[in-house]
Measured scan of single mutants.
Amino acid sequence: EPELVFKVRVRTKDGRELEIEVSAEDLEKLLEALPDIEEVEIEEVEP
């Protein structure tokens, strides 16, 4: 069974934007590691 992958769009407080694809596990780590995120948009990517 393929692992869930999420497309994550992040905007930081200083206005930088970042778009990455991460696994569910990595997404959890990412959110814990970035306390200064202003906006996060997450969508599931079809395998």
Results as ranks from 00 to 15, higher is better:
residue 1 E to N: 14
residue 1 E to W: 12
residue 1 E to P: 12
residue 1 E to Y: 13
residue 1 E to S: 12
residue 1 E to D: 12
residue 2 P to N: 07
residue 2 P to D: 06
residue 2 P to R: 10
residue 2 P to T: 07
residue 2 P to Y: 09
residue 2 P to A: 07
residue 2 P to Q: 08
residue 3 E to T: 06
residue 3 E to W: 03
residue 3 E to Y: 05
residue 3 E to R: 07
residue 3 E to L: 06
residue 3 E to I: 04
residue 4 L to V: 07
residue 4 L to R: 12
residue 4 L to M: 05
residue 4 L to S: 03
residue 4 L to H: 08
residue 4 L to A: 04
residue 4 L to C: 14
residue 4 L to P: 15
residue 4 L to Y: 11
residue 4 L to I: 07
residue 5 V to N: 12
residue 5 V to D: 09
residue 5 V to A: 08
residue 5 V to R: 15
residue 5 V to E: 05
residue 5 V to W: 07
residue 5 V to S: 12
residue 6 F to T: 14
residue 6 F to W: 03
residue 6 F to Q: 07
residue 6 F to K: 15
residue 6 F to E: 13
residue 6 F to L: 15
residue 6 F to G: 09
residue 6 F to Y: 09
residue 6 F to V: 15
residue 6 F to M: 14
residue 6 F to H: 15
residue 7 K to Q: 06
residue 7 K to F: 01
residue 7 K to E: 05
residue 7 K to M: 04
residue 7 K to T: 03
residue 7 K to H: 12
residue 7 K to D: 03
residue 7 K to A: 03
residue 8 V to G: 01
residue 8 V to M: 00
residue 8 V to Y: 00
residue 8 V to N: 00
residue 8 V to C: 05
residue 8 V to E: 04
residue 9 R to H: 03
residue 9 R to D: 01
residue 9 R to Y: 01
residue 9 R to E: 01
residue 9 R to Q: 01
residue 9 R to A: 02
residue 10 V to A: 03
residue 10 V to W: 10
residue 10 V to D: 00
residue 10 V to S: 00
residue 10 V to E: 00
residue 10 V to L: 10
residue 11 R to W: 02
residue 11 R to T: 06
residue 11 R to L: 04
residue 11 R to V: 06
residue 11 R to G: 01
residue 12 T to I: 05
residue 12 T to R: 04
residue 12 T to G: 04
residue 12 T to A: 04
residue 12 T to W: 14
residue 12 T to N: 03
residue 13 K to E: 03
residue 13 K to S: 06
residue 13 K to R: 10
residue 14 D to N: 06
residue 14 D to L: 03
residue 14 D to G: 06
residue 14 D to R: 02
residue 14 D to E: 04
residue 14 D to P: 01
residue 15 G to K: 02
residue 15 G to S: 01
residue 15 G to A: 01
residue 15 G to D: 01
residue 15 G to R: 02
residue 15 G to V: 00
residue 15 G to H: 02
residue 16 R to C: 13
residue 16 R to F: 08
residue 16 R to M: 08
residue 17 E to Y: 15
residue 17 E to M: 14
residue 17 E to W: 15
residue 17 E to I: 15
residue 17 E to F: 14
residue 17 E to Q: 11
residue 17 E to N: 10
residue 17 E to K: 09
residue 17 E to R: 11
residue 18 L to Y: 15
residue 18 L to N: 01
residue 18 L to W: 14
residue 18 L to A: 03
residue 19 E to S: 09
residue 19 E to M: 11
residue 19 E to V: 14
residue 19 E to Y: 14
residue 20 I to H: 02
residue 20 I to T: 03
residue 20 I to D: 00
residue 20 I to K: 02
residue 20 I to L: 11
residue 20 I to A: 03
residue 20 I to Q: 02
residue 20 I to S: 02
residue 20 I to Y: 13
residue 20 I to N: 00
residue 20 I to M: 10
residue 20 I to P: 00
residue 21 E to T: 14
residue 21 E to V: 15
residue 21 E to F: 15
residue 21 E to G: 02
residue 21 E to M: 15
residue 21 E to D: 05
residue 21 E to S: 08
residue 22 V to Q: 00
residue 22 V to A: 04
residue 22 V to T: 04
residue 22 V to P: 00
residue 22 V to D: 00
residue 22 V to C: 11
residue 22 V to F: 02
residue 22 V to N: 00
residue 22 V to H: 00
residue 22 V to I: 08
residue 22 V to G: 04
residue 23 S to G: 08
residue 23 S to E: 02
residue 23 S to H: 08
residue 23 S to K: 10
residue 23 S to L: 07
residue 24 A to Y: 10
residue 24 A to H: 06
residue 24 A to M: 11
residue 24 A to G: 06
residue 25 E to Q: 11
residue 25 E to G: 11
residue 25 E to K: 13
residue 25 E to F: 09
residue 25 E to T: 12
residue 25 E to R: 14
residue 26 D to L: 08
residue 26 D to E: 11
residue 26 D to C: 13
residue 26 D to A: 08
residue 26 D to P: 00
residue 26 D to V: 05
residue 26 D to H: 07
residue 27 L to Q: 00
residue 27 L to R: 01
residue 27 L to D: 00
residue 27 L to P: 00
residue 27 L to V: 03
residue 28 E to I: 12
residue 28 E to R: 13
residue 28 E to Q: 13
residue 28 E to H: 12
residue 28 E to A: 13
residue 29 K to C: 07
residue 29 K to G: 06
residue 29 K to Q: 07
residue 29 K to I: 05
residue 30 L to F: 12
residue 30 L to H: 02
residue 30 L to I: 08
residue 30 L to T: 04
residue 30 L to P: 00
residue 30 L to G: 01
residue 30 L to S: 02
residue 31 L to Y: 04
residue 31 L to N: 01
residue 31 L to E: 01
residue 31 L to M: 06
residue 31 L to K: 03
residue 31 L to A: 02
residue 31 L to F: 06
residue 32 E to R: 14
residue 32 E to I: 08
residue 32 E to D: 08
residue 32 E to T: 10
residue 32 E to P: 02
residue 32 E to Y: 07
residue 33 A to M: 14
residue 33 A to F: 10
residue 33 A to L: 11
residue 33 A to V: 07
residue 33 A to S: 14
residue 33 A to T: 10
residue 33 A to W: 12
residue 33 A to C: 15
residue 33 A to P: 01
residue 33 A to D: 08
residue 34 L to Q: 03
residue 34 L to E: 03
residue 34 L to W: 12
residue 34 L to T: 05
residue 34 L to D: 04
residue 35 P to T: 14
residue 35 P to R: 15
residue 35 P to G: 15
residue 35 P to Y: 13
residue 35 P to C: 14
residue 35 P to D: 14
residue 35 P to S: 13
residue 36 D to R: 04
residue 36 D to F: 07
residue 36 D to Y: 07
residue 36 D to P: 04
residue 36 D to H: 06
residue 37 I to H: 10
residue 37 I to C: 15
residue 37 I to T: 05
residue 37 I to R: 05
residue 37 I to D: 06
residue 37 I to K: 04
residue 38 E to G: 08
residue 38 E to A: 09
residue 38 E to R: 06
residue 39 E to D: 09
residue 39 E to F: 15
residue 39 E to H: 13
residue 39 E to M: 14
residue 39 E to Q: 10
residue 40 V to K: 02
residue 40 V to C: 15
residue 40 V to A: 04
residue 40 V to Y: 12
residue 40 V to R: 02
residue 40 V to H: 03
residue 41 E to L: 12
residue 41 E to W: 15
residue 41 E to P: 02
residue 41 E to Q: 10
residue 41 E to Y: 13
residue 41 E to G: 04
residue 41 E to S: 12
residue 42 I to P: 02
residue 42 I to A: 03
residue 42 I to H: 03
residue 43 E to D: 05
residue 43 E to A: 10
residue 43 E to F: 14
residue 43 E to V: 14
residue 43 E to S: 11
residue 43 E to Y: 13
residue 43 E to R: 12
residue 43 E to N: 08
residue 43 E to I: 15
residue 44 E to Q: 11
residue 44 E to P: 12
residue 44 E to D: 07
residue 44 E to F: 13
residue 44 E to C: 15
residue 45 V to E: 05
residue 45 V to A: 07
residue 45 V to P: 06
residue 45 V to D: 04
residue 45 V to N: 05
residue 45 V to H: 08
residue 45 V to Q: 06
residue 46 E to P: 11
residue 46 E to W: 13
residue 46 E to L: 14
residue 46 E to Y: 15
residue 46 E to S: 12
residue 46 E to D: 11
residue 47 P to S: 09
residue 47 P to M: 10
residue 47 P to I: 12
residue 47 P to N: 10
residue 47 P to E: 07
residue 47 P to F: 07
